[in-house]
């Protein structure tokens, strides 16, 4: 048994992504951070469905034996497509913001309460 290394990698990815969102000043870097969080969560879902010594849940020319769980894989598929949809929308907003501001600095987007 491998001491849950992939699970810990999930936490690593999530924290790297979050710190990018919190500490980075560049809008595209923030989006990259969100992409990384998404990858972490996807990896977590797939890892949950893995069984030691299993084969993929596909019967075409399958050698038999235990199979990995199909449900988390289906969920991950959904989550991947949602991820690309969100990323596309965010990037198109960023292009617009750049047209208005001429910079990608997140501090340019000040609030109205100051």
């Amino acid at each position: 048994m491998i001491a849950n290394i992939p699970y810990l990698a999930v936490v690593g990815l999530i924290i790297i992504g979050l710190s990018a969102v919190i500490f980075k000043k560049n809008l595209i870097k923030i989006i990259i951070g969100i992409t990384i969080i998404q990858s972490g969560v996807n990896l977590f879902l797939i890892t949950l469905g893995y069984r030691e010594g299993s084969t993929a849940p596909i019967w075409t020319s399958s050698p038999g034996g235990v199979m990995a769980f199909p449900v988390p894989q289906a969920l991950t598929l959904t989550s991947i497509v949602i991820g690309v949809a969100v990323t596309a929308l965010m990037l198109s907003l960023v292009i617009h913001l750049y047209r208005h501001h001429g910079t990608l600095d997140v501090r340019k987007m000040g609030g109205d309460d100051q």
Partner: peptide, 17 residues
Amino acid sequence: LKKMHTGNVSDYVLWFV
């Protein structure tokens, strides 16, 4: 309170954290 409302996305996420 005004100082709290910076209008910066990173701060919003930080508050969530």
